[in-house]
Structure formats: structure tokens, C-alpha cells
Design a protein around this nucleic acid. Structure first.
Lengths: 147, 147
DNA sequence: ATTTATGCAAATCGTTTGCAAACCT
DNA sequence: AGGTTTGCAAACGATTTGCATAAAT
């Protein structure tokens, strides 16, 4: 995992480059995402920052997503999950999604499989005339607690 | 693609088995899903069935999802997309998702790749103690129109 | 000083639900 | 008749937004 200070520095620089400020609350949101070893929800973030207004948390997340440093994961009609973008952590990963409690956990697959997926992805993009930005591989089932 | 009559028969039987009726409006919803060559939204369904109440469409979809004959796809905070379940159409496929207009299109990958994914999936499930039901491979980007 | 971010409360919007009437068997 | 399904309108709940205040540069 990337060092926290480096992470903050990198994000600060990206935000500044877009004319935005890396405020205390934005830093707190990033810390909440970074502390967790899995994507977190808005309530998760607020529990760790009881003084942060809900609307500010949402606005911070929106800024960070817009700046490309945070990724939003929508898989149910409950809360979205948020995580630090892959290119900042340096580890490309995927998600296990629990159909019972809605929790999301990370996993990785061998590099060769990623390459095969990208290869197939390229063919599909060409055949169906899409411009594919990235792939997403989810495993849907029950987590250790809900199984 | 499966013959419509066979599809309706199969669904009717499944619903009856669960003590539910395969009513005219449910049949109409299934027809709307089956006519499209891609997952459709609630507005899509209502356009084809102007006399169907929105709440009934949602209730029908919920029943069909509950019975396992329809799959709901949530990928944005706009409308969900719905499609006939794989096991009824006999073709396992995945989705291209447009980040601009939100449309969803189907694609397939070679059988060997599916097997490699399932293999990796099995390992992950064992290592992280999840019970995995199925995998999901999405390609995120821009559709032919929005590219 | 001027711009940008925050907190609060109200609005949004896809989806769900209560209830009475219509439908099926 | 007895149970299910439908339509309408109201309720829900996660997220967004307007606006006045506070913070950052």
C-alpha cells in the first residue's frame, strides 16, 4: 500500500492542478477510504467523521471522483461504495459482492488472466465499436459472515 | 434465442410452482425484455405498454427477479436495467456499459476465458471464504453513439 | 478581498408501499 | 367466495442542491 503522506501529496497535487483545494474534510474523507481495506459507504465515512456534514461528504466524494482519485461502486440500490482509485494505490483489483449484507471486498487475479481479459475486451470493443476504458470483474455471492 | 412460446411456458411453469400467476401484464413485461437485444429500463418497458401502471411494472419485475427468471442490473443511480436470466436464454453473456448515456449492451467471450475466470473465482472463494454464486464481467466505456 | 468549501434544510428522483377496486380460478 | 394482482397516490431513502456562512488563498 502507498504511504499515506505520499497519497495525500499526490491527491493534493492533482486537485490543485484542477483549481480545487485539498481541505481538511477532503483529507479526512480520503483517510477514511484509505484506512479501510475495502470499499466503504457514506455511513462508514460519517462514523469516522461525526462532525462532517453528510452533504459535505457527498460533495467531497463527488469532487474526488471527478478528479479521478476516487472510484464509486454502484451495485445495489442501497449505499454506493467508494475506494481510492487503482492508479494511486498501484494495485489493480476486483470486487466480491455479498448479496445478503451488501458488503464489498477486494480480490486480485493472476496477471495473465487480466491480460487475457484485456485481450478479449479489445476484440469486443472493435467488433461492437465501443471505446472501452476499463474492465470490471465482480464475484457475486455471500461473504464469510452471511454464507 | 429461445422461442417465445417456450419462454412463456417455462416462465409460467416456474411462477406456478411458486404459487404465482403468469398474468397478462407479467407476460407483457417479459415480452418487452425478450424483444430487446439488450437489457432495458423501466421507461423502455412502459413505452411499449402505455396502459401498464408504473408500480405494476415494478412489482412484476420484482416477482420475476424473485422467481429467478429476470436479472436486475444496477450500475448507475439512474434506472436499473432488466434482462431475461441466462439460464432461460441459454447464452451466458456480459455487459458493455456506456458512461455517457448509461446504455447497456451484451457481449460474449470465448468459452475458455469463462472457464479461466471460474477457475480463478473458485480459488478466491476458497481463500477468502466466500460462497460465490456467479461472476460478472463488465466493460466500461463509451458506446458507438457516444464515443 | 475574492474565490471556494461547508452546514443546514429542502428538493430530487428512482423505487416501494398502502389500500380499495378488478381479476382469476 | 377467496386469494392475488392492479392502479393510483402517497411514502421512502440515497443523493443532490440552494443559500447563507465560514474558510482558504
Amino acid at each position: 500500500m502507498i504511504l499515506v503522506d505520499d497519497l495525500h501529496d499526490a491527491i493534493a497535487q492533482i486537485l490543485r492542478g484542477q483549481g480545487q483545494r485539498y481541505t481538511t474534510s477532503r483529507r479526512a474523507v480520503v483517510d477514511a477510504l484509505n484506512r479501510a481495506d475495502r470499499p466503504v459507504t457514506l455511513p462508514d465515512i460519517l462514523v469516522q467523521n461525526p462532525d462532517l456534514a453528510q452533504s459535505s461528504a457527498y460533495r467531497n466524494l463527488a469532487e474526488l471522483v471527478e478528479a479521478g482519485v476516487v472510484r464509486r461502486i454502484i451495485t445495489s440500490d442501497e449505499y454506493s461504495h467508494f475506494e481510492i482509485a487503482d492508479h494511486l494505490t498501484g494495485e489493480h483489483h476486483h470486487h466480491l459482492i455479498c448479496t445478503v449484507c451488501g458488503s464489498v471486498e477486494d480480490f486480485t487475479v493472476p496477471h495473465e488472466l487480466e491480460e487475457l481479459i484485456d485481450l478479449a475486451s479489445g476484440e469486443v470493443a472493435r467488433d461492437q465499436r465501443w471505446s472501452v476504458e476499463h474492465h470490471r470483474l465482480d464475484l457475486v455471492g455471500r461473504c464469510a459472515t452471511c454464507a
